[in-house]
């Protein structure tokens, strides 16, 4: 029997949305394939949430409910996952793509001799995941990757819109799991503190992103984007130029040396559309471009566009949107 394991990530005692999304997607995959069993592994405590209520479908979640696992710790997390994968004979391990999985998954790949794959999943005839497909060379090309070992590890990029389904169907059983406390656990690397930015929706998890580039002219120019993002319930992003100029923090950078995002709706305002930027939005849904240069390459990847100066177009767009929302 094929067994899938989904790594469920909590941060500060809250189960991450991207992990719930990954679990639900793996449930869908299991339903379409010839009867795979879905299991989960949760490291560290989750406060004030009932884990079973958050997750769809049937399955078992192994919960290492230990306070010392609350912060991410590479060595103990590695040992926890490797022992469960071996013990349960897992054939595919899934992560939501995150800073944690990018740190942990390559290590697991080496220790489990498992094929590590990221990007969009490819499937075999039985409906099992069997490789991936993703952009390479800064989004100028794509390539397929196929696993060469019996165990595969997949890191799932956020799905468009991150729909969290209701969990009315099925029962998720939570089973405590313990971890050996190794004497070598003298905490080689220890997370001392997590500093979260206030009230900011992370671009990696946002359904709508309003991004600005060189055309915004200054950090003050981004006030318009903040206003538009607030109206839409989205997050603000930036091009490399805007970040290098110090207009916005690096955490908001989209593209080759920044983040890869997959919002349902993406506004590119005053962004010319360099290949390095486009690399970060290859999985975006609807792209809207606003640029004064009608020949800007951003229009070649946009679904909708307005040619004009962002400083003139954005205030009118915000007005039009406010009016539209009033009528609703």
């Amino acid at each position: 029997m094929t067994k899938f394991l989904v790594f469920l990530e909590q941060r500060e005692g809250v189960l991450k949305k991207s992990s719930i999304d990954a679990w639900n997607r793996v449930q869908e995959i299991a339903a379409l394939s010839a009867g795979a069993i879905v299991t989960g592994l949760l490291a560290g405590p989750v406060d004030r949430q009932r884990i079973g209520d958050l997750l769809a479908g049937d399955g078992v979640v192994y919960h290492a409910n230990e306070e010392r696992l609350r912060p991410y710790q590479q060595e103990s997390y590695t040992r926890l996952v490797t022992s469960l994968v071996k013990q349960e004979s897992i054939s595919a391990l899934f992560f939501a793509d995150s800073s944690l999985s990018r740190d942990l998954a390559p290590r697991l790949s080496v220790l489990l001799k498992a094929s590590l794959l990221s990007g969009d999943l490819l499937f075999n005839r039985q409906g099992y995941p069997d490789g991936s497909f993703r952009p390479v060379y800064s989004g100028l090309a794509t390539a397929s990757f196929s696993p060469q070992r019996n165990i595969s590890i997949y890191t799932l990029s956020p799905s468009r819109g991150m729909v969290i389904r209701s969990s009315a169907d099925g029962t998720v059983q939570v089973m405590p799991t313990a971890q050996y406390h190794h004497s070598s656990d003298n905490l080689l690397a220890e997370v001392r503190r997590i500093v979260l930015r206030q009230n900011s929706l992370d671009i990696a998890e946002a359904g709508i992103i309003v991004a600005g580039g060189r055309g915004m002219g200054s950090s003050a120019g981004f006030a318009l984007l903040e206003e538009l993002a607030a109206l839409l319930g989205g997050a603000v992003g930036a091009s490399r130029f805007a970040v290098d100029e110090g207009w916005r923090p690096h955490a908001e950078q989209i593209g080759q040396t920044g983040k890869t995002v997959a919002p349902q709706l993406y506004f590119a305002c005053g962004v010319s559309g360099a290949p390095q930027h486009l690399a970060g939005i290859a999985s975006a849904g609807i792209v809207v471009a606003i640029n004064s240069d009608p020949d800007a390459s951003i229009f070649q990847v946009a679904d909708f566009g307005i040619v004009g100066d962002v400083h003139l177009v954005l205030p009118k767009l915000i007005e039009a949107l406010k009016e539209f929302l009033k009528k609703k």
């Binding site: 094929s115 100028l140 794509t142 397929s144 696993p147 060469q148 792209v287 566009g305």
Partner: peptide, 17 residues
């Protein structure tokens, strides 16, 4: 652990409305 194949240039042009 992994085999890469099918490398090809990405055609991503859309028709902008």
């Amino acid at each position: 652990l992994v085999l890469m194949s099918d490398l090809k240039a990405l055609e991503r042009k859309k028709v902008c409305r």
